[in-house]
Design a binder for these strands. Sequence first.
DNA 1: TTTAAAAAAACAAACGTTTGTATTATTGTT
DNA 2: AACAATAATACAAACGTTTGTTTTTTTAAA
Lengths: 344, 344
Amino acid sequence: MGFKKNRIKLEDIANKLNLSIATVSRALDQNPRVKQSTREKVIQTANDMGYMPNQIAKSLSSGKTNIIGVIIPRYDEPFFIEVCRGIDHYVSTHNYKILISSSRNSFDSEVENLASFERGLVDGIILSPTHETKTFSHIKNVINAGIPVVLFDNIIEEMHGADHVLIDDKKAAFSAVEFFIKKGKKQIAFIGGAKEKKVFKDRFEGYKEALNTYNIPMNQNLILHCNSLDRKSDNIEINSFFNSPQIKPDAVFTCTDNYGLLTMKTLLKLGYKIPEDISVIGFGDLGLADVFVPSLTCVAQPSFEMGQKVAELLINQLSEPENINHQKKVITLDTKIILRESTP
Amino acid sequence: MGFKKNRIKLEDIANKLNLSIATVSRALDQNPRVKQSTREKVIQTANDMGYMPNQIAKSLSSGKTNIIGVIIPRYDEPFFIEVCRGIDHYVSTHNYKILISSSRNSFDSEVENLASFERGLVDGIILSPTHETKTFSHIKNVINAGIPVVLFDNIIEEMHGADHVLIDDKKAAFSAVEFFIKKGKKQIAFIGGAKEKKVFKDRFEGYKEALNTYNIPMNQNLILHCNSLDRKSDNIEINSFFNSPQIKPDAVFTCTDNYGLLTMKTLLKLGYKIPEDISVIGFGDLGLADVFVPSLTCVAQPSFEMGQKVAELLINQLSEPENINHQKKVITLDTKIILRESTP
DNA sequence: TTTAAAAAAACAAACGTTTGTATTATTGTT
DNA sequence: AACAATAATACAAACGTTTGTTTTTTTAAA
């Protein structure tokens, strides 16, 4: 702790006032066990001397750090930042702070981060698993060690043993594709990300089910799974996809806002009119979907709210008595389609 | 610290092996004072028992938390996130973690955050002052308490007593406007944010100086200072600005990427051709400047690098011997113009 | 006044480490 | 076999709080 050794502590106040450390501690805590006049004297002196409590000592003694650890796959995705904002918003009203770590989309780093948090620095953990994460044991271990964990986004079956918050990706995709179908679209393209990622798999399921429900044959040429290393590679993949001669879509459902914007960029360069010639729907509704010309119709994902809910579940666990057997909780949030210029 | 009471500690290992706590501690530390065979036995047992060191106790004892506190004005600006990425990148190689807090653009909240960090939770602090921040004393106090502080972005004169990293906003704006002038532009508009904010003031200075240097009269009608509450209000202000009959710019220098994109959106809606009729330059080069159609030429601000530099200055301070009198350090990073489609 | 009850404050252990100093065990020398 | 010298380990204080228990002081009743 980067402070000089002459930092004022309880002992200094106690010495100055000829009181015991315990009394000073209780006085500053507004504990009624110490006399009103003493309490005032202590508080006055503490202020005069510039006393600052030592959070670390407090934590060691009380067994609480009032810090929530948050592990996200990456910083540079507005979705995660928005969720963090939601978490921060909620926990700050409960006197908690958040410690954010990035797993940089690596399972090993996720395990490492978890272990680091397990060293007692945090009271609870919020985790968004990477798409590399196929197991639950590393999470289960933390839970078994008595540290509450809540998950969000990209939750696979195995992880249902932990509290979590998610959206119904399949349903959301279904409704977007259904929207296209009801507008009379027949050649609906799908642009998703790495197939191993749960959210993309689910959204693809929703796409297929919508086509199936309305008896529209699926055309493999209209389907693209980006590898999504970065925006530049996405751009290249999407470009060559639409430049292929087999492609004649009249609508495109994309699994992220970025894919949606890159798709529109590509289509505009190719001379398409949006939405007259072709419609586009994005997924997420963060960033600049509303700034682009034309603005992008989106499946809106309630990111901030998701953060709040995740935080709420965690704080609830933290305030439960230790011995009661925790009942697993799952919250599924609703999505909705925000209509803009990229669709008729 | 959210863990069950039955958590394994040094004492448990010591008891099991009939050793003292000190020896166990040293063994796990790879301290040569303990015999090779003992060391191995201890490490083996620690693993078997599932020992996890208690970070809080470690911190109390060692006086170091290995946490860096970072205070940014807001989460939802890619610039700050990018800086945080840079910080994280640098400090993680030095075995530090970052604790990010948002001051929500409020001076009071900044003071509060600083005080909270001063309670011994962090070894050092990185701060980006809000635009409300006009004083230095609250920062000076923290420094005087022995906690290293490094500042970035929006640094006013008063704060020069602390290490800081910045760009030359005036020079950057000057070069962007000069670029326009050399392309033959005569009616160069300026779109900035709240005038109290240092960065916007400096960029405005650069704009004025460029005009002045090339003997171009300044036209008040071509200047807009947005209040910048959120993107929606920016949009409205920029819209009504360009819809005014007095405005006939042939180029627009905007102080952020967002302003640049909103400007292009407005101009496109009004039927302008970019860059044929009018050119636009943004500032920052984060987010979607390269995705927009047309893509936006930008003054690129090295955000990630800024984070790394800030972190480097802080880590340097942390590794200095306590008694030496710290020599204040200032790093000014270079900007450059990234040419894209919005300029000829 | 003495004494019991209540109020106020002091004492001391605990939280889980680190680390300087003291003690015990081992080795090598004669 | 006795004795240094050194290696290995144990002891104990310290980090700055919190909090249960005990002691002292004050108040009020007899």
